[in-house]
Design a protein around this nucleic acid. Sequence first.
DNA 1: TGAATATAGATATCTAGACAACCTCATTTT
DNA 2: AAAATGAGGTTGTCTAGATATCTATATTCA
Lengths: 241, 241
Amino acid sequence: MDRIDGIPHYVRIREEIRENLLSEKLKKGDRLPSEEELAAFYGVSRMTLRQGINDLIDEGLLYRRHGVGTFVSKNHLMRDHSRLNGFNQQPEPSSDEITEELLSASIVQAKAHVAKALGIEEGDESIRIITLRCIDGEPITIHDIYLPRVLFKNVKLGDIDAAMSNLWEFYSTHGNVIKNGIQRLEARQAEGEIAEQLKLESGAPILYKERTLYAEDGTPIEFLYCYNRGDMYSVTIRLQR
Amino acid sequence: MDRIDGIPHYVRIREEIRENLLSEKLKKGDRLPSEEELAAFYGVSRMTLRQGINDLIDEGLLYRRHGVGTFVSKNHLMRDHSRLNGFNQQPEPSSDEITEELLSASIVQAKAHVAKALGIEEGDESIRIITLRCIDGEPITIHDIYLPRVLFKNVKLGDIDAAMSNLWEFYSTHGNVIKNGIQRLEARQAEGEIAEQLKLESGAPILYKERTLYAEDGTPIEFLYCYNRGDMYSVTIRLQR
DNA sequence: TGAATATAGATATCTAGACAACCTCATTTT
DNA sequence: AAAATGAGGTTGTCTAGATATCTATATTCA
């Protein structure tokens, strides 16, 4: 077998099987043909086939039973906030207009908490970006973002407005590719400026989030405080044993 | 090479490398020896070595750079709520006394929302378990759990009190092994009975959680409403690209 | 000097097998 | 009837290679 493009066989096979799942040629609960049969069908070795299948198992679309077979999972898990996709956040079915407004961009000295998260010294320079996201004109989310200045040396504050639409790509173009992160969620009450900006009564519920994003090697790239209107926002997480 | 126990080589190697990470023989940022060298060292083929390494990469402990090498991540991601561990929830350093009290166990007819989550018909029988978790006597969390009756046919309500300490094991013994799940988080306000039981003022922030747990094949095993005191509880999630 | 090019070494992909471990189910034995 | 056995099929683990692709560095060329 020769590869036509630069696409590895296991990727091609994985995507072909995924198509069969989406088009329901493979239905929930179905058993796939044996690995030997499938490998022969796709014209690859069994190890290569398994590499493709493994990806789909990691995604929860398939599962294996030793000595029995490979099956289609009964719960196709939908949108999954535990994977990073740089806020493509699929617009909900009732897709209203989502806007994002830059409230401020500045250079600040990192306070202790931020510095610790970004792995820099307290007082070191960081870029602070505050944004407001609205759905259909309703304010939903405030982001308070901090970047280590040292990773974005020749960035001017004026550049940020243009980069707003896709911050992650902006990071990439400066050599900082996001690979993973950690976030922590709490329930809080709206107060002061935050309440005002989200047009909430003081005391209204807020889904508060802290998030740190890292590059492949674990270098912190972004630290974020995030305030979400409790009545308009929820987070879905896939759990995996 | 012969395996001494039934332990596969790739598991043994994975754990040996993990030991070296924990003991910091391998430090953050270090490059591991090349795959060829490591395979020779451990006396296995390169494919087998890679299988072990892959697990550690999935855990975020290592990362690879094509053409360059395999490295130790700089951020050893700690406790990770996006993996399921059946509520061993490592007691925090300041480990206070955690107690769990059964408030009620009953057979109820599933309402629409619960029925949909459990994949049963509205009105079908389900087992409802309500518990209160306290830390140091302070009420923290209320769980409102629903199980499909059909999966726990010969269970008597009296059995549940004994099983409380480890519900997941209880599920297993009835042939229902938890493999994955989905949870959704919201910020809400405490009200009525919930506020009372958590000893909160009406209006206090609550971290509200809905969770469905599934078996390997996607069969829903448990559906849960969960109310956490906002000021005493947070959820940490690892994000993976 | 600066750009193109070789080169060495690393990971990525892939093969064509082998045997082990496990599950199911039919058959035989007790 | 119940338990043990065995056969056949499936996934799990593993090998000893091969070639491709990528990266960084050193070298050569303009």
